[in-house]
């Protein structure tokens, strides 16, 4: 969030999109809506929720509104290579240090998904809960709404307490409301406001001994907005778009926004996503709080130096589903 003009433009754009999502009441064409098929025979049948707004629980670095059917067990393998800016030197990031997350999820009851995962960077464990409490239904609900939250623990060894003075400093939290609309059979859009919370922030004392003050480099809470879209090219192949805009202004260390573009391929049991993105940390709160890669050129607020954007990296998500 180092360039306020960009921020304002994207913020207003994002808010417009939220408004559009909530207000546009275009009826879905019958193809993707199974309701239409059933109502073709018997008129009084109650409308049913729209299906397949998204075909994976992930859209690059964000969660989608989707919660798989009860009894679904999922395994996730997520990989982020290094930034591509070094070119041949590290083969556009492929040979650079990478980040990996392994995760599993399960749907124990209808509309609920619980998961656990481990990310390589900082050996970060995460436990998550996702609940779909509103589903887009013709003539009833214009959008689907899902809550996603997680708690993460930095599990690095710290025998001499040089990293963490207290155990609670290892924790961070993420809460997100995902609002999505399947606009047509091909196009689905979602917006997702979120709040990330970190239990500790870097700081130091300022002033003289008689008037000591603590300067906190960042705030504990950070608000952000994600806008994502999927456009189906074929029945099993889609284009993916995602943009994350930080909203909270911190004293220093303001995170950069994130722009991602990718492709998704779906089979009966798998979903493959291949993309370029700025986010590398594989944890929503860490991405939102600490992203240093920027898609756009910006001026560093501390040094006043111009910094080139375009710090993209290649990544992929693979999900494997089993139904029990």
């Amino acid at each position: 969030m180092k360039n306020s003009n960009i921020n304002n433009t994207w913020l207003s754009g994002s808010l417009c999109l939220v408004f559009l999502l909530l207000m546009v009441s275009t009826q879905l064409s019958a193809q993707g809506d199974s309701t239409a098929a059933s109502t073709a025979k018997a008129a009084p049948v109650a409308p049913k929720p729209v299906k397949n707004t998204f075909q994976s629980v992930w859209i690059i670095d964000n969660q989608t509104v989707m919660v798989p059917v009860k009894g679904t067990f999922e395994m996730d393998i997520m990989h982020r290579f290094g930034v591509m800016t070094h070119g041949y030197q590290d083969l556009y990031g492929f040979f650079a240090p990478s980040n990996i997350r392994l995760g599993v999820d399960y749907a124990p009851i209808k509309n609920l998904y619980v998961g656990i995962g481990l990310t390589k960077t900082d050996m970060l464990w995460d436990g998550s809960v996702k609940y779909a409490f509103l589903k887009q239904t013709p003539r009833k609900y214009p959008v689907s709404v899902t809550y996603y939250g997680n708690m993460a623990i930095d599990s690095r060894k710290d025998a001499d307490n040089s990293l963490f003075k207290y155990g609670s400093q290892r924790f961070s939290f993420f809460n997100q409301l995902i609002i999505a609309r399947k606009i047509s059979d091909k196009l689905s859009v979602q917006v997702a406001p979120s709040i990330s919370h970190q239990n500790s922030v870097p700081g130091y004392y300022t002033g003289d001994t008689s008037n000591l003050k603590v300067f906190k480099e960042m705030k504990f809470d950070h608000f952000a907005l994600a806008v994502s879209a999927r456009y189906k090219v074929t029945t099993v192949t889609s284009l993916l778009f995602n943009y994350d805009q930080p909203l909270t202004r911190h004293a220093t260390n303001n995170p950069n926004p994130n722009l991602s573009l990718g492709l998704e391929f779906n089979t009966s049991n798998h979903s493959f996503q291949l993309f370029v993105t700025n986010y590398s940390l594989l944890s929503p709160q860490r991405n939102n709080l600490y992203n240093t890669n920027s898609p756009f050129d910006y001026t560093n607020s501390v040094t006043g130096q111009k910094v080139h954007g375009g710090q993209f990296l290649i990544g992929f998500n693979i999900t494997r589903l089993w139904n029990y």
Binding site: S29, A30, Q31, G32, D33, S34, A36, A37, S38, A40, K41, N52, D185, T234, T235, V236, N266, T267, S268
Partner: peptide
């Protein structure tokens, strides 16, 4: 068959066919 064989149903079926 509980679903009429119309364009919408066939299109929905085709999508499922492609995936599964």
């Amino acid at each position: 068959n509980a679903v009429a064989s119309d364009a919408a149903s066939i299109a929905a079926g085709k999508e499922l066919w492609s995936t599964h």
